[in-house]
């Protein structure tokens, strides 16, 4: 597939925008066009935060979409904002550690990934976003995990950032494993 659209939605401060931006930086290795739009402004740190990412080999028209094909939800309140909007036949990945809501849609695929739990197990709950990103990439094969690891390397070059870099990479790979072994 040469087109991917994704909406990531969650609470400000948990890295919603970061994984969107990373996906963009990594995506350009494979796609001719890429676009990232963060719509967060009144909502940083604690409010609802969302972003859209589009990867495509054709010129990307709209930077925003009401009905995304793929959504990634990090909290229960953000899930409520996005559940009805996902395109029929689309997919949803949610953080199963913190979201227990029942999904009413039966025309979309839902994956409950215990992202926060896995991140805590690896050393820090702040890496839950990376677990979800890993799961997304395993599910869609939009780009290889290596490109995201390269993007992380470029961002976290200082010696002092080594532990957080290692944690993020582990979380990314564990997320992909969780998806690979996922049974609907």
């Amino acid at each position: 597939m040469d087109y991917h659209e994704l909406m990531i939605i969650g609470t400000g401060g948990r890295g919603v925008l970061l994984i969107g931006r990373l996906l963009l930086e990594a995506g350009i290795n494979k796609y001719k066009h890429a676009l990232f739009f963060p719509n967060y402004a009144p909502a940083m740190r604690g409010g609802e935060s969302e972003c859209t990412v589009v990867l495509s080999n054709n010129y990307i028209n709209s930077p925003v979409m009401f009905n995304p094909y793929f959504a990634l939800a990090m909290t229960s309140s953000s899930l409520q904002l996005i559940e009805d909007r996902i395109k029929s036949g689309g997919s949803l990945i949610l953080d199963g550690s913190v979201i227990s809501d029942e999904i009413k849609r039966n025309d979309i695929k839902t994956y409950r990934i215990p992202a926060t739990e896995k991140a805590v197990e690896l050393g820090g709950n702040q890496a839950a976003n990376m677990v979800l990103l890993g799961a997304y990439l395993e599910c869609t094969k939009a780009i290889s995990l290596n490109f995201v690891e390269d993007a992380l390397d470029r961002r976290l070059q200082e010696e002092s950032k080594k532990p957080i870099l290692t944690l993020n990479k582990m979380a990314l790979n564990e997320g992909a494993k969780l998806m690979a072994n996922y049974k609907i």
């Binding site: 890429a34 990232f36 739009f37 963060p38 402004a41």
Partner: peptide
């Protein structure tokens, strides 16, 4: 505007 100012593209 806000959308064009904040969105990222190559």
């Amino acid at each position: 505007d806000f959308i064009l100012g904040q969105m990222d593209e190559p």
